[in-house]
């Protein structure tokens, strides 16, 4: 487990400051939730952490290592994994194949041209473990394109887990997942807590308050409050920014 430190991160698209001087320190093993209204720049922030986007200024560090200039694959090798808000899996692969490929990526030996990869027990077993941690082992042999939305969310998580990350970036893992399904998913996440350093972006406030050690509130690209769920819930500034839209912080 490693800490994740974000220092004075800035990113603009034209005149729009989507990330405005964000500093954040996530402790090893902490589950740190980032909440904020739509358009606050949460996904843009995660993309800069994962390396899909590069920041204009500021820095991102894993432990003591500055990773601001590294590409996404390089960051993954250092133990940073992300799941996507909009499902991004390999639709023509089975769930197991999706995850087995992530295991293969971690093992770093993909220039093998002859052995039949589908029969490699080591890849498949590690993939199965990740699938069951995400609660999807029963659907391992189903093509990803035939899985339900909720199952896609679980597959996203399983793929991220299979890269054996030190830090997990979860971008709205519960997006669009309904009622009972969401509860099961939160239970799965609860089990992962403490094993990884986790940055969680989530709209589902029940989930956030059930899972998070600390919460940061992002509004118009800047962090207006950080603290325990309880402290953030009672912060007047947060209430003003967040609850102005008649939304209850449950």
């Amino acid at each position: 487990m490693t800490s994740l430190t974000v220092t004075n991160l800035c990113k603009s698209f034209g005149a729009l400051k989507v990330t405005d001087d964000v500093s954040l320190s996530v402790e090893p093993g902490e589950l740190h939730a980032i909440i904020g209204p739509n358009g606050a720049g949460k996904t843009t922030l995660i993309s800069q952490l994962s390396g899909q986007l590069h920041c204009d200024s500021g820095s991102v560090a894993i432990g003591d290592r500055d990773i601001s200039r590294l590409t996404m694959p390089e960051r993954v090798k250092l133990g940073l994994a992300r799941s996507f808000q909009i499902t991004s899996v390999l639709p023509g692969f089975t769930a197991l194949e999706n995850v087995a490929l992530a295991v293969q990526a971690r093992e770093g030996s993909s220039f093998r041209f002859f052995g039949k990869v589908a029969d490699e027990a080591r890849l498949n077993e590690a993939a199965m473990t990740a699938l069951s941690e995400a609660g999807l082992d029963r659907r391992a042999h189903v093509l990803a394109r035939s899985l339900s939305h909720g199952e896609h969310r679980r597959l996203e998580l399983a793929i991220a887990l299979a890269t054996q990350p030190k830090i997990l970036l979860l971008d709205e893992p519960l997006a669009g997942v309904g009622g009972g399904d969401a509860e099961g998913f939160v239970a799965n996440l609860q089990k992962l807590k403490g094993r990884f350093t986790i940055v969680l972006i989530e709209h589902d406030m029940d989930a956030v308050f059930a899972l998070a050690d600390r919460v940061s509130v992002l509004v118009y690209g800047s962090i207006i409050a950080t603290g325990t769920p309880e402290a953030v819930r009672n912060d007047p500034e947060v209430r003003a920014a967040y609850l102005g839209e008649e939304e209850e912080l449950v």
Partner: peptide, 9 residues
């Protein structure tokens, strides 16, 4: 994108 996100170039 997914392939890059799991660490392949």
């Amino acid at each position: 994108t997914r392939i890059e996100a799991i660490g392949f170039s």
